[in-house]
Design a protein around this nucleic acid. Structure first.
Length: 266
DNA sequence: CGCAGCGCCTGAAGGC
DNA sequence: TGCCTTCAGGCGCTGC
């Protein structure tokens, strides 16, 4: 499932390959989730940016092509059109290559908007700071989390306190910070630990090229290696690295959540 | 405005 | 072997 590190890996690979190219043809799956892809036809790609899990492709006509990969979205740039069953959109470029969006489960979304106008994309409009942003401080996280009485993990997944964490990295960050996912408020020291954990977990995962558990592939078809460094997610029943207590799993707001009941107290 | 609940999707895996 | 159920889960939408 592509989260910030996976999307960043794809962004870094795509940017040098498609920037400066014009889109000479565009086709899409008929679903309204993907059909806006054709609105980018005729535009020139200036650069590929990212906010949270959203890819923002700047076009030369004061618009942005916005792609969210959902659960199973994969972007690639083959030399020919893709006729596979899961192609949801593809854009032919003026160098003869194709930008192709495959998405088995169709949880992804594509939009074209006026540059910077995210008024119709609520999650993006309300997106919290990037983990790497200096504005993402312990004080910010403390205040953002305590504004709501929802469970801390649910808040992290909302993308509002901080951008880009999904189920994997939320579990990892909460474990690293020794913070209980089901808590509904957080102390200042715990918020400081959680802030640092978010930064560290996301940065390491980017360094590792993302986490490939099932579907995730980068823009070159490669796998990440961060799955070999997960310390909590998916390890229910295995001993906690810190205290050897078997990690536990439970469902928190419809998300499988793994945590250490001994270490993650606050 | 916040938020709980639901729906979207389909391949893989497990039960019988 | 094959049918059925369950699971994976990010996010947009609806209605309270």
């Amino acid at each position: 499932m592509p989260e910030l590190p996976e999307v960043e890996t794809i962004r870094a690979q795509l940017d040098p390959v498609i920037s400066g190219r014009s889109i000479v043809r565009a086709t899409s799956h008929p679903s309204g989730k993907f059909s806006p892809a054709i609105e980018a036809n005729g535009a020139l790609i200036e650069q590929v940016r990212r906010r949270g899990k959203y890819l923002l492709i700047d076009l030369d006509d004061d618009r942005e092509l916005i792609i969210h990969l959902g659960m199973t979205g994969v972007l690639s740039v083959p030399n020919n059109a893709d006729d596979g069953a899961y192609v949801r959109a593809q854009w032919e470029l003026d160098d003869g290559r194709w930008l192709v969006f495959n998405d088995v489960r169709r949880f992804g979304r594509i939009r074209v908007v006026t540059a910077g106008d995210y008024s119709t994309i609520a999650t993006l409009r309300n997106l919290g700071p990037e983990p790497s942003d200096p504005a993402f401080t312990a004080a910010h996280l403390h205040q953002a989390l305590n504004k709501s009485s929802r469970r801390l993990k649910t808040q992290l997944l909302s993308q509002r306190p901080v951008a880009g964490l999904g189920n994997i990295y939320a579990d990892e960050a909460l474990w690293l910070a020794k913070v209980r996912p089901t808590a509904r408020s957080i102390t200042k020291p715990a918020a400081a630990r959680l802030r640092d954990a978010c930064v560290k977990v996301i940065a390491s995962a980017i360094d590792n090229g993302g986490t490939t558990l099932r579907d995730y592939r980068d823009a070159e078809g490669g796998s990440g290696s961060n799955q070999f460094y997960l310390r909590c997610y998916g390890r229910s029943g295995e001993p906690c690295e810190r205290c050897a207590t078997p990690l536990r799993a439970m469902v928190v707001d419809a998300r499988t959540t793994t945590w250490c009941a001994v270490c993650q107290k606050s």
